[in-house]
Each structure stands twice: as C-alpha cells, then as structure tokens.
C-alpha cells in the first residue's frame, strides 16, 4: 500500500499526470477513486477486494474522466488486457496514459445481494487466470502471491454448460435472457464497448428490438457477445453490473474459446498484436461458406 501511495504521490507531484485512478475505502468496501492531489493519493488502496476494471474509465465515452487531464491507472492483469484492447482498437494512445501495474493476487467474488456477507470465494475468472501480472505497464508494484485455487473456475462453468444436450443449453440461456430488462448496464460498464452509437440504439432501421421480450433479448445478447469476440478480456464487469443476474461471463468465455480454436488468438495485454476482427488473413477458415 505504501508503495502504491508513494508512487501515486510522486506521479502527481513530478510528472504530467493530473489524476491517479485507483481504489479507495468506502463504508461498503472499496470502490473506484480519482486522486487529483497528493493528499487524495494517500487514500488509495489495493487488495483482493479491488474487483473493478478501471480501464473502463479510459475510453472516449468517459468524457468526464478525459476532462480531468492525463491519467495514471492502476491495472491488474485483466485490466491491462482491456487497456491493450483500447490501444489496439485506436481508442487510446499509449502515451496518453500512465499504467501502474499490480502483481494481482486474484480478487474476491463480489457479493452484492443482501444477507450473504463474509462468504469469501475467488472470482471465477481468477481461478486459472491466464495472466495476473501485467506486462503492459510503466511501473510494476506489489508482491508475488500464490495462484488462486479452489472453487469453480470459469472454464469449469463453460464445460458444464457445453456438456448439456442442446435443448437444455437452449433452456438455460433462454431462461437467463428472459430476466434481461435491457438496461444495457453490461454495455455501459464494458471497457471495450466504446462505440459512440451502439447498434442497439439505432432506430432507423431498428436492427435490434429494444423491448425486453424474448426476441429482442436474444438479438441483443447475441449481438453483444459477437461484437466482443476476440476483444473480451474476461474481466467479468458485464456480469457484475447486470441487475438481473445473467451469467454473461460464461457466454463470453465460450466465445473466446472459439476465437482461440479458429484463429489461434488469445486476448493478451500486447497492444500491437492484431486481433482477428481487426485483420484479414487469406488462410482464415471458410468451410462454413457453402
């Protein structure tokens, strides 16, 4: 914690950084914080409760954050992958942000529902995390810690759903999507959903019906997932923000599996590796064209 605070203070005092985006204590656990003075930087914390992906504050739709000036952001492994995604997709220039990497111990699953306190378990994505320590960073702080283990990992969840017969898998997703109220919290919090105008908000023509009925919800969730193929960093923010409790991480993880199998592409924090959706290769599989 000392290391983080000293670095944040130094950045604010001596370099061209106007805000350090990190976490602070609140009366209900930790939450995103925007330290604009050395005194505010003394409040920054980092530990297993820091589940939020702060890269979401870096994309161009967050005009109120861009207005603060040049930011430094504290990034875990998954957060750094999101920053790389923004750079890869030309939404952020590397030199416009200072990245404070933390050796991530894994984070606890957040438990927002009332009456379920203390029941600490690792966030599913942290069990078998591909990269806890970012390589895309200007500073690297914190200490190595043992790999999070125990509890169901996300891969296991994907396998469980994949193993179901088609009809049961359909029933699982139908009942999940039925709960959707189309608030688009999943989209608004996604660090990679940076479109100024989302396909779902276009009404002439209305590509995707905005009503939260079966047809509209299915169209929305398929479009959302497909637009994140090869881009989703698996930070789980969409699922965490969803007021309806839809297990979006499972869908996202399955899609990234597909991208891995078909395009040999794994989302990493390398900002220059071309993504399947951003490049054209003549040897891409096309056996589905008949």
């Amino acid at each position: 914690m000392r290391e983080l605070r000293e670095l944040a203070v130094r950045l604010l005092e001596t370099s061209d950084v106007q805000v350090v985006i990190g976490w602070e204590e609140s009366r209900r656990g930790v939450r995103p914080a925007f330290a604009q003075t050395p005194a505010e930087a003394e409040r920054l914390v980092f530990d297993q409760r820091c589940v939020h992906n702060l890269a979401a504050y870096l994309h161009p739709r967050r005009k109120h954050i861009r207005g603060l000036g040049r930011p430094a952001v504290v990034v875990k492994g998954c957060d750094a992958r999101a920053v790389a995604g923004l750079i890869r997709d030309n939404q952020l220039r590397r030199e416009d942000v200072v990245l404070i990497g933390v050796r991530c111990p894994g984070v606890w699953a957040e438990n927002k529902a009332e009456g379920q306190p203390g029941n600490r378990r690792w966030a599913e994505r942290c069990v078998s995390c591909p990269q806890r320590t970012p390589t895309l960073c200007d500073y690297l702080i914190g200490e190595d810690s043992p790999e999070p283990s125990g509890g169901p990992g996300l891969e296991a969840q994907v396998e469980r759903i994949q193993a179901l017969p088609m009809a049961e898998r359909w029933a699982f997703w139908s009942s999940a999507f039925e709960r959707c109220v189309r608030c688009y919290a999943c989209r608004e919090i996604c660090p990679l959903c940076f479109c100024e105008r989302c396909l779902a908000d276009k009404s002439m023509p209305q590509w995707i019906e905005s009503s939260p009925h079966r047809r509209g919800n299915l169209a929305w969730h398929l479009a959302r997932a497909l637009h994140l193929a090869g881009r989703c960093v698996g930070c789980g923010e969409c699922e965490r923000a969803c007021p309806a409790g839809i297990p979006l991480s499972i869908l996202n993880a399955r899609l990234q599996q597909s991208v891995r199998e078909r395009f040999e592409f794994v989302v990493s924090d390398d900002p220059v590796a071309p993504s399947p959706i951003g490049e054209f290769r003549v040897d891409d599989g096309q056996e589905f064209i008949r």
């Binding site: 995103p32 109120h64 608030c183 688009y184 608004e188 209305q206 905005s210 923000a241």
Partner: peptide, 25 residues
Amino acid sequence: ALRCHGCGACASVCPACHCFDIVDE
C-alpha cells in the same frame, strides 16, 4: 459523478423509478 459509468442499474433496481420508452414494433 466521477465514478458513475452511466449504466443505469440503479434505475432498474429502484422501487420508485418509473420512466419508460414507447416503441412501435
């Protein structure tokens, strides 16, 4: 407002928020 993502989850879970949109399908 700094930390707000504008996701609107607060309105979805509010027992008193009642705004609606009208669409033709």
